[in-house]
Design a protein around this nucleic acid. Sequence first.
DNA 1: GTTAGCATGTAAGGAGTTACATGATTTT
DNA 2: AAAATCATGTAACTCCTTACATGCTAAC
Lengths: 194, 194
Amino acid sequence: MAKRGASLEFAVLGLLHDAPMHGYELRKHVNLLLGWTRLLSYGTLYPCLKALGKAGFIETVTPDEPLIRGKRPRIVYKLTAEGKDHFAALLEEAGPAAWDDENFNIRLAFFASTDSPTRVRILEGRRSRLEERLDGVRTSTQRGRARADKYTLELQRHGLESVEREVTWLTELIEQERSAGKGEDVPSSITEAK
Amino acid sequence: MAKRGASLEFAVLGLLHDAPMHGYELRKHVNLLLGWTRLLSYGTLYPCLKALGKAGFIETVTPDEPLIRGKRPRIVYKLTAEGKDHFAALLEEAGPAAWDDENFNIRLAFFASTDSPTRVRILEGRRSRLEERLDGVRTSTQRGRARADKYTLELQRHGLESVEREVTWLTELIEQERSAGKGEDVPSSITEAK
DNA sequence: GTTAGCATGTAAGGAGTTACATGATTTT
DNA sequence: AAAATCATGTAACTCCTTACATGCTAAC
């Protein structure tokens, strides 16, 4: 639904697919998964949880242990049946949105729930995306009159190298996928509906 | 002034310090400098230009060549005296803000306008920041009950490696700075006001 | 001639951060 | 006892993106 906040929504759904959790726990998991740059803040997470609840994808778990352990109970969330369907549907979307900067990492984190052809498709899409970027920068650098002091050059070299490394990494993952492709490990709990 | 949009403001000021330019050109330069992820959009740039103009840091250049070469003239901007002062002041700020994710790269791009001690200070600050991050993730991974499937692990490994590489790079730059530190190349046009 | 790139803007809307508000529990 | 961490939320604000609106110029 939400085009842009798709990444967080996907992460929450995916993590709750593993196991029920409360907000604080979710935040830590998301930060471990993709918190290399910005850390997920409560101001983002809790409203997202509310929205997902209103959409019917998650619900609060009525606690078995008595929740009177203080005034503020921990609110544990779990996926509803609709939430599971929705997550399965998201997993099937293997188009450009799956390999943009915003979404690729979180997609990769839940690759175990997808089938091998989808994995390859997304990995290749991501790689193409990065290669286009590389081409663009290389072209601009050549013809454009760019700044060329030592530090600017270092910055550009390091940036270029990072992207090149990611391409190499993706290539390795793709090759692993292809060679393991025959003795296929069946996706865990997501059934092939389509 | 602006805490968060500081990065773009700094870039614009720095580029106009090199030479007067119009918006379209600025965008290309900024994108070459730090456009590895998101590309700077006009919706961000032009309002920023207006704000900088209103703040008195930049002004439009009355063109020497007759600007009647179509209805839409190119609006060339240059730094005012206040703009130069402001940029010089920004260059002297070598605190935490200079080495966060948002600002470090653009600071590095204009390192040639700073003196060597400031460069080392910022490089070391950035390195510490990344090392803290590394520690945090390593600690969380060990004690926390994290997901541990193949793809999550790959994602984490690659993320960790990227940050480690950046630390190595920074260390190299610091060493270069120290060894070249004695036969100092004087900062170009920024005078040491303080 | 038509595509691609040059060139400048605005309006609406989305996503996320910071700071605030509140309080319990565990560790040092 | 203090500090850290657990735990949930809200409101204001900022920045940015997308899509729209307009028109020229060079290359193929």
